[in-house]
Amino acid sequence: MIDVVFLLIIFFMTTAQFAKLTRAEVELPREQGEQNRVPEEEGIVINITLGGNIVVSTEYVTLDRLELLVQEEIQRARGRNAEKVRVLIRADRNCDAAVLNRVVTRLQHMGVGAARIATEIP
């Protein structure tokens, strides 16, 4: 019995999918979104917290550091084309747009043509 239980524990531990900790705890804008159910590559996820902090993969980053991370993503992107870089912005709905505006301005200067803004389906 003990053998079986340990076997089960090992099975669950090895098969468990540890979700990437790319998503910070933020209250997203409550909107329906595009309702396009086609799954897309996530790319770089930029979280903007209520306090106006920028978080990428659990790391608090400055705008300059964010620029470096996006540059790395551009390098990884197909054909090194900034237009094709996938950026997902997860911003807290109660935060002022000032930080979002600064992030968008930086992205635009780097040649990123579009960004996805995450919404929470009400």
Partner: peptide, 20 residues
Amino acid sequence: FMVTTVLIRPEDRLTPLLKT
């Protein structure tokens, strides 16, 4: 498993173009 489960709210997205 109850403690380690992360409940994810359903999300969607909007994709605006970016311009300064």
